[in-house]
């Protein structure tokens, strides 16, 4: 269980996170949706510890993480765009990260097979396409079998087949009781997958509930339309 309470973060004059509180439960896939610059990435990076919040608290199973690096042992993170040391081959990259993480090692074979990465293993990372890099990033985040999986736009750059396979795999991980948090700006993509949707706008939570609930609340047929309706509602209120 990841709990977030009163999280605030400003970058200069921009309020990236403006008092966010929510709880992410194990055995569920939670999706954070919202337009660009809504604060999705910042929220995820706060949980991972790349960004320090100005205020608020993040707890994992009741323990405040407070930037403690040991918490990341239980955590896998897929960044929006992956950068790797350019000098390495894929295999060496995996070995490097395994070396960094030390004892809690896995080989990531399953996902390598799933994404069909076997042929790329000995190629230098710098020669790979964006999609392949994204796959590698996903393998890196999951190969150590973390309890909590945090993914920033995991399907970006993936071909439809890989995307589909990834979804299947996520559903299975959910069944294994993992806590999964996915950020995406493509709402249709997460609708079928997620148990719960958090709609973020200007650093605030506008909606937090099951996808169907959003549609029911707004009277729209799909989540996407429901979100759009919520955004319009907000702008008319602002007038």
């Amino acid at each position: 269980m990841v709990e977030i309470a009163g999280l605030k973060k400003r970058f200069g004059s921009i309020r990236a996170l403006d008092g966010i509180s929510l709880a992410i439960k194990p055995g569920e896939i939670t999706a954070v949706v919202g337009p660009n610059a809504a604060g999705k990435s910042t929220l995820l990076r706060c949980i991972v510890g790349l960004v320090y919040p100005d205020a608020g608290e993040i707890r994992i199973d009741g323990l405040s993480i407070n930037g403690d690096w040991r918490c990341r042992r239980r955590l896998g993170y897929v960044a929006q765009t992956a950068h790797f040391p350019e000098s390495l081959s894929v295999r060496e990259l995996f070995a490097f990260i395994r070396d960094i993480r030390g004892a809690d090692s896995g080989d990531g074979k399953e996902l390598i097979g799933l994404f069909g990465l076997e042929g790329a293993l000995d190629r230098p990372v710098r020669q790979l396409s964006g999609g392949t890099r994204q796959k590698i990033s996903i393998v890196l985040a999951t190969m150590f079998d973390p309890e909590i999986l945090i993914m920033d736009e995991p399907t970006a750059g993936l071909d439809p087949l890989s995307s589909q396979r990834q979804k299947k795999w996520l559903e299975r991980e959910r069944a294994r009781g993992k806590t999964i948090l996915v950020a995406s700006h493509i709402i249709a993509e997460v609708e079928e997958l997620s148990d719960r949707v958090i709609f973020l706008l200007d650093g605030k939570v506008y909606f937090d509930g099951a996808p169907g609930e959003a549609a029911r609340l707004t009277g729209e047929r799909t989540l996407e339309r429901a979100i759009a309706a919520m955004m319009e509602q907000r702008s008319s209120c602002g007038r």
């Binding site: 991972v48 510890g49 990341r72 042992r73 955590l75 993170y77 993480r101």
Partner: peptide
């Protein structure tokens, strides 16, 4: 710094 993000997402002290 570009791949520091990758490292810092691992269980490693900054």
């Amino acid at each position: 710094r570009e791949f520091a993000e990758l490292l810092l997402a691992q269980p490693v002290a900054r």
